[in-house]
Design a protein around this nucleic acid. Structure first.
Length: 362
DNA sequence: GAGCCGTGGTA
DNA sequence: TTACCAAGGCT
């Protein structure tokens, strides 16, 4: 449902060229400086974006703030200067370096994709949106953005920022996620066929810096004249979203077995939550309260002592409360199974945040 | 297509 | 504290 109140809407289509020009001009003078980004003046001087560096940034910034992801981008580029270096690394090394960034399927797919680029693409990323889309971890957004930034393909870049801007400009009434269809259509009609990569990044910058979710700075917006939501003073109502369900609470127990400076960890199953990552041994995490028989889930018998308090951690689709037990062991011959590992402090850096919290609780 | 999949910052 | 949000992709 686009422009349901047709009589109150300006005729935007005749203004598209002016809108593109204003946005690109704003980007050239006030867009963000990001370490992987080639500024327009550099590109004019013949400098091209490195697809590997752009790919790394795009994967890392999926559902992740620039502030949180940027240190990881530097770390990965320093550790793995080329995509072949990344492919040649052990997967567990890659997952360990990813620890703390979240959405760990991204790290599994990152390494899988690097191997494909090394083995099937001669170490070079394919140069079209359609080919990029075939690679693991690269979806509609990332393929469109890489193709535009790296290969100047005229794609339709739509991320969360663009959704917000476009939904306000055109007052898209259909709530997300169904409203994405209309938003994509309008974004595609408006997208610039020239400087397509800069245009996409400019629109994302506009969303991140000006057309923000809670306090948009409309007085500084180069599209204010064309914004239906601004005209109606309804900016904060967009994008309209379907109501969210409250998070259920899951409960679990983890065991911290200590031997000298080492702590027992285990590698989690490859699929599902925190798949392939290191973790503490313990129970499943389920609704309905803490397990009534925690000792039955201990990795082995011992003098397990309950740690005061509980560890709380919020995941995307549930709220977790963990009870923590600890015990100290002297024996050198405790059987820890094939997934077990007596991990030193360096190895513990490869733990997802939820387990680092549990270790910090003792 | 709706549910699954992390974490840290902010109001 | 609670709720929402941030450069999505996969199944």
């Amino acid at each position: 449902m686009i422009n349901s109140k047709k009589d109150t809407k300006p005729n935007l289509e005749s203004n598209y060229d002016e809108m593109r020009a204003r946005l690109l001009h704003w980007y050239d003078s006030e867009g963000r400086t990001l370490p992987w980004r080639i500024r327009p003046e550099d590109r004019a001087a013949g400098k091209n974006a490195d697809p590997y560096a752009i790919w790394l940034s795009e994967i890392m910034l999926q559902q992740t703030t620039v502030a949180h992801g940027t240190p990881y981008w530097h770390k990965f580029l320093n550790e793995f200067p080329t995509v072949t270096d990344l492919a040649n690394a052990e997967r567990e090394t890659v997952l360990s370096l990813w620890a703390g960034l979240g959405y760990y399927a991204r790290a599994r797919n990152l390494h899988k994709c690097a191997v494909i680029i090394r083995d099937d693409y001669n170490g070079q990323f394919p140069n079209s949106e359609a080919e990029l889309l075939k690679l693991p971890g690269i979806g509609a957004y990332t393929a469109a953005t890489m193709a535009a930034i790296c290969f100047d393909e005229a794609t339709n870049i739509v991320d969360g920022n663009v959704e917000r801007v476009i939904s306000r400009i055109f007052t898209i009434e259909e709530p997300l996620p169904k409203g994405r269809k209309d938003i994509r259509k309008m974004a595609g009609a408006l997208a610039s066929p020239q400087r397509t990569g800069d245009y996409g990044q400019a629109l994302m910058d506009l969303g991140a810096m000006i057309c923000t979710p809670r306090s948009p700075n409309c007085s500084k917006c180069v599209w204010q004249d064309y914004c239906s939501a601004f005209a109606a003073k309804t900016q904060l109502e967009y994008p309209k979203k379907a109501p969210k369900k409250s998070l259920p609470i899951r409960y679990g127990v983890v065991f911290i077995a200590i031997r000298g400076e080492a702590v027992l960890l285990e590698t989690r199953p490859d699929n599902g939550l925190l798949g392939g990552m290191l973790g503490l041994p313990g129970t499943d995490w389920a609704e309905g309260g803490f397990p009534t028989d925690p000792m039955n889930h201990a990795p082995f018998k011992g003098d397990w002592q309950a740690v005061n308090g509980e560890v709380r951690h919020v995941f995307t689709h549930f709220d977790l409360r963990l009870a923590v037990y600890r015990a100290v062991f002297d024996e050198k011959d405790i059987s820890i199974g094939h997934n077990g590992l007596w991990a030193d402090s360096s190895q513990r850096k490869g733990l997802p945040t939820v387990f680092k919290k549990a270790l910090k609780a003792i």
